[in-house]
Every structure is written in C-alpha cells, then in structure tokens.
C-alpha cells in the first residue's frame, strides 16, 4: 500500500536518544563520522561497533528496523568489499582468474565495509530518533552563522519543512487518485511499457493540478498570517540545551579521547 510508507522514518519514542536536542545529535554525528574515518585500527573499530550497537539498544528501536536501512546500499557495500579484496597489493592467499585475493585486501575490505555500515547506521539513528520538523529546526539553527554571509538559512529550512510536510499529503492524494482511476477500470500493472506510461497520465495530471492548488492556497494562507521570512520571527518551541545534552557531549568527548589514545598507542 502506498500510504504505508513512512517518511523520514521517524520512530516515536522516549529514549535518551529521542530526548537529546537535535543539534546535539547532528554535531555528535558529525564528529563520529570524522572519527570513523580517522581512527582506523582494529580495536577502535571494535569499540565503535560496540558503541553503535549500544546506541541502537538504548534508542529502543527494533534492531531489525535499523538494519533495514542498510538494505538499499547492500550492493554498494558488497562491491567495495570485493574491489578491496582483489586489488590491494600484498601476499596472495588464493587466485581466481586474474584476481589475486590477499590477506591485506581482506582486512581492508572488512574495514571499508564496516565503515560504510557504521556510517549508515549512525545517520539512520539520527533520523529514526528525530522528527523531521525537529531536524529542519536544528539545521536552521546550526546554519545561523552562515546568514551573515548571505546564506538564506531560514528560507532553506522553511522550504525543507514545507516539502516534508507535504510528502504525506501528496502520497495520500496520489493514493486517492489512483484508487479513483482504478475504480474507473484503469490498470497500472499490466501491458507494455508504453501502455503503462500512458496509464500514468490519469494520475499525474490531477496530482499536478492539486499540488499547484495546494501551493497556491498555502502561499495565500501564509501571507494572510503576515509571513515575511525569518526576520524577527519567534517560535513556539525553542530549542534548548539541557543537562542530558552536556552529559552526551562529555561522554562523547571522553569516548573520543579514549579512541584517539588507542590509535596513538598503536594497538
């Protein structure tokens, strides 16, 4: 069913990760990503993997659901693994046709795949535990300093918010129009490609018309409520840094120092 799609994959909950300020989550994610790239020894990877596992556990999101986020990138991960396995110079263990598999390659391949998997898992944890609106709010806030050099941070965030807001609406609309045309006997799932493309016209035309009508109405409604951009605008829910955020920063800092120490000591 079309309406069964979850957008932004937000998974409501009350865990520590849900309660953190979205800005904290974005900043920490950013540092973890850098960490994953710089700190590349076996022990640090084990530590990072355990850490990610612990985060997923604490977030209260079913493990299966988080793992699903890797699914679309599964082939890329496998492909990079194979490339590294076959193209890293070193002591050959086995030889298949023109490719020689090396121990170094295996190690490198595992590292790179693990790196990709951790990246995906951590970033999807962010979107799993943060509602899309909180996320755009946080982005606007973090982009704040860029306003001075002329980046329209508020407008960008507003555009994202509106786009996100209308995704479910448009999906619902598409679903409704599809059903209406189906009830009039149109068939979207059989026939040649040309036929199938043609059968999309009865959906796309009404969908575009209603999208434009909605855009028009929204613009009118915003103007009627005196919207004129971000200047001087206050919000109902201000983002606030709480104790829990300071604790998160401190914990992340200690964890980072520990990992760096592991890397420097060469373990």
């Amino acid at each position: 069913m079309l309406t069964d799609i979850t957008i932004g994959q937000y998974f409501p909950g009350q865990s520590i990760l849900h309660r953190l300020d979205p800005r904290t989550k974005i900043i920490l994610l950013f540092f973890f990503i850098i960490g994953i790239f710089i700190l590349d020894t076996s022990l640090t990877y084990i530590a990072l993997t355990l850490f990610t596992g612990a985060l997923i556990y604490f977030s209260g999101i079913p493990f299966k659901m988080v793992l699903k986020s890797i699914k679309p990138l599964w082939w890329i991960i496998l492909f990079t693994f194979l490339i590294h396995l076959c193209s890293t110079p070193g002591e050959p263990v086995a030889k298949i046709w023109i490719f020689s598999l090396t121990l170094e390659g295996l190690r490198q391949g595992i590292f790179i795949s693990l790196r990709l998997i951790l990246l995906i898992l951590l970033s999807s944890l962010l979107t799993f535990t943060t509602s899309p609106l909180a996320l755009t709010d946080a982005l606007e806030n973090l982009m704040g300093p860029l306003k001075r050099v002329g980046v329209p941070a508020h407008e960008l965030a507003m555009m994202m918010t509106i786009a996100l807001r209308f995704v479910p609406t448009l999906i619902e609309e598409t679903d409704k129009i599809m059903k209406a045309q189906k009830a009039r006997g149109s068939d979207f799932s059989s026939g040649s490609i040309v036929h199938r493309l043609k059968s999309l016209i009865p959906i796309l035309v009404p969908l575009f018309i209603s999208a434009f009508r909605r855009a028009d109405e929204l613009a009118m409604a915003m103007e009627a409520r005196c919207y004129r951009g971000g200047i001087g605008r206050t919000r109902m829910k201000d983002l606030k840094i709480h104790t829990i955020d300071y604790i998160a920063y401190a914990a992340a800092f200690v964890f980072g120092i520990g990992l760096t120490a592991l890397k420097i000591s060469g373990l």
Binding site: A180, Q181, R184, S186, P202, P206
Partner: peptide
Amino acid sequence: MVFQYPEHQLFEETIAADIAFGPRN
C-alpha cells in the same frame, strides 16, 4: 465508486473524453 471530492480526479482535455475514460477501459 464516487470518491470524496471526485472533481479532483478529472484529467482529460475535454469533458466528453473524461467521462469516456471508464467505459473505454
């Protein structure tokens, strides 16, 4: 089946063509 706000499902260039859509199918 006539849906809520059925006028939102119109798509053809002419009225006759739109009404003919179902029978044609």
